[in-house]
Deep mutational scan, measured.
Amino acid sequence: DVEPGKFYKGVVTRIEKYGASINLNEQVRGLLRPRDMISLRLENLNVGDEIIVQAIDVRPEKREIDFKYIP
């Protein structure tokens, strides 16, 4: 289970102007929005990149997770 405040290694699977889709595994994925990137710009991400993200909002009833990137 993903817990708010914990850090996870994820893989960038899609990049859109509203954010990047991050997969932690086949069943768990979430969104990294541009506003939640401290020192990383969306255009510097590539599909397949592995990054460390922090879960900031977990809504299991909607199967949604928001991530934050902290270098």
Rank of each mutant, 00 (worst) to 15 (best):
D1Y: 13
V2W: 07
V2R: 04
E3G: 04
E3T: 13
G5E: 04
G5V: 03
G5Y: 06
K6W: 06
K6R: 13
K6N: 07
F7H: 04
F7S: 06
K9E: 04
G10D: 01
V11E: 03
V11H: 05
T13C: 09
T13N: 03
R14H: 11
K17P: 15
K17S: 14
K17N: 12
K17M: 11
Y18L: 09
Y18G: 10
Y18I: 13
G19W: 12
G19K: 04
A20C: 08
S21Q: 15
S21Y: 15
I22Y: 00
N23W: 14
N23V: 14
L24R: 01
L24I: 14
L24W: 04
L24D: 00
N25V: 07
N25L: 07
Q27H: 15
R29F: 11
G30R: 01
L32M: 05
R33N: 04
P34T: 08
P34L: 09
P34G: 08
R35Y: 07
D36G: 04
M37Q: 04
M37A: 06
M37L: 07
I38M: 09
I38C: 13
S39G: 15
S39Y: 13
L40I: 13
L40F: 04
R41E: 11
R41I: 12
L42A: 04
E43D: 12
L45N: 00
L45I: 10
N46A: 14
N46L: 10
V47T: 03
D49A: 06
E50K: 11
E50Q: 12
I51D: 00
I52L: 10
V53N: 00
Q54E: 06
Q54A: 05
A55R: 03
I56A: 07
D57N: 15
D57E: 14
V58M: 06
R59I: 06
P60I: 10
P60W: 12
P60D: 07
P60R: 09
P60M: 09
K62R: 12
K62E: 10
E64S: 08
I65R: 02
D66A: 09
F67K: 02
F67S: 01
F67R: 03
K68G: 14
Y69D: 03
I70C: 10
I70P: 05
P71Q: 08
P71K: 08
P71E: 08
P71S: 11
